[in-house]
Amino acid sequence: MTFFYRTIAREFLNYRRKPGLFLNPLIFFGLVVFLFVVGLGPDEAKLNQAASIFILVASLLSVLMSAESAFDQDYEEGSLELVVVSSNSLLIYSLAKSLAHWVVTFLPLILLVPFIGIGLFLDVEQIWVLCLGILLVSPTIILLASVGAAMTISLPRNGVLIGLLVLPFYVPPLIFVTGLFEAALLKQNVFPYVYWLIGLLFLALGLAPSATSACLRIAAED
């Protein structure tokens, strides 16, 4: 357990020293949402309907960007090799990295959602639902991105490749979050979507870290 905390502490220190690692993807997120809005036009009803898609797709893209840098650094510096040599658990290592990654990307993003929601003319209840949806889906997004980043860790200029590998897996999260939002919009029952999102979360939590750590080991033992 101490290894878990130490890894998280190290990650936070790393992010604090180089805030660009998480600030740039956050700004990128804002820009993508902005471009979507510009493309769709200022029509209130339209924006209202598409809000969840904009925010979710933009967050997916920005997470993929930051996931790349979160894992590549360790490989290039050789820290990953040291972790493998020290026979610490790579599973715990990747979980700790994902948790830190979640905190620096999705926590600020969820805090941003109310402001973006105001810009997209959402009412308070819709904003709450959207925050809930993103809160539930964000760990899944982060964990899947970590698998993609770990898979391509030994490859140079792998950003596009990560997207190519991981984006198809984002179909279910996207569908259930937009479904949740739509159900809230139409005042329907939202619980099926919530259960599904929780189910996806547990599935990702159960499987993704082992896939990530397997890929990290493969890269280190290359």
């Binding site: 190290r10 790393n14 020293r17 180089k18 650094q73 510096e77 050789g78 820290s79 090799e81």
Partner: peptide, 8 residues
């Protein structure tokens, strides 16, 4: 690769 983190 010496395993030195540039930001630390």
């Amino acid at each position: 690769r010496p395993g030195i983190n540039e930001n630390l």
